[in-house]
Design a protein around this nucleic acid. Sequence first.
DNA 1: CTGCTATATATCATATCTATATATAGCGCG
DNA 2: CGCGCTATATATAGATATGATATATAGCAG
Lengths: 187, 187
Amino acid sequence: MNIRTLCLGILQFDDATGYEINKLVADGRFSHFIEASYGSIYPALTKMMQEKLVTCRTEIQPGKPSRKIYAITPAGQEELFRALEDTPRPNRFKSEFLFLGLFANMLPADLMEKAFTHHENELMTLVEDMQDHCNHCDNPGSKFAIGYGIAANKAALEYLRQNKHLLLESDPAEPVSTDVTKEPSHE
Amino acid sequence: MNIRTLCLGILQFDDATGYEINKLVADGRFSHFIEASYGSIYPALTKMMQEKLVTCRTEIQPGKPSRKIYAITPAGQEELFRALEDTPRPNRFKSEFLFLGLFANMLPADLMEKAFTHHENELMTLVEDMQDHCNHCDNPGSKFAIGYGIAANKAALEYLRQNKHLLLESDPAEPVSTDVTKEPSHE
DNA sequence: CTGCTATATATCATATCTATATATAGCGCG
DNA sequence: CGCGCTATATATAGATATGATATATAGCAG
């Protein structure tokens, strides 16, 4: 699945400008599926217009750049549904925060604590935004997707809260097990 | 955070060849942090060798391409820990499966069902592999990361199972049963 | 003995991202 | 009232990364 399919999919729901598509992919309702940015969206739209997969009407705005509003054509829909038949690629999850965690014992404690706090806030905000968004959403596919995201991120958040002590060597006050034979004093 | 930092981070734990780094990033212990592939790893290593951030010793194998084993230098460690001070970028999660879900009501039911089954199996395998991996893992940072992944993906899997009916046009009406016993249908 | 997988380096064409240029409007702030 | 900031809107250059392939050999299954 590529940028073309993403754009066609968005246009299948509603006509849009390149600017609007970018917003939807960066922040909005289409931000959890496929990555894209200006540099790929505008060329994709231009090319698909040449191939008659989309049409474009120009809305002149006095004093502002004209809005080029794209709409999907029947040929575009064919291409879209053809592409959707391919087995979707596996989910992609990448976390720089977790990468940082690999080096927890080699880094200053305050740096790690700052990172944990930051990440926790990030997850909280994300879950709240998604829950908010979920309420103002009627499309069942979107609702399902957001629900999926809420479930996964809530679980991650809970895991984070319950296990951060494993990397924040902070609370030795409450040792988990008393019959450990090995001295954990190394490093 | 970029490919350079990723490579330095891997080499911080152990010397490795470009081939091995690629394996670790594609499949292995370092597959949940930052994306990379041959085309970016080899050039990064070459450049970092010129900059003395890594060293390279060549191990000649008769009949096979020589192994170029890279090791991090003190300057490389400095660069690594410098880079780790930057606030990690937010987690990235992208799912083509969820994108497909947006069009559930426009696509053939069997296509959607196939996609759901496939995705469910994918998640199951992933969770199992991670649990397996978690047991044979001593590094606390790695353990934490895998635990995080297990928590999130288990929640996603559970959500999937409990909500797939929302997109699989559940026909909750009793279908083909000629038997009118009260036995709840299951399959 | 053929095909497949694994080891191992390397690069090319293509795709994509990041950052910027251009232009205007509106808003808050001192 | 101007200053900076944000938002709207298109577009692209340059840097970066991906995906596929080339090269070469070994081991294993059928």
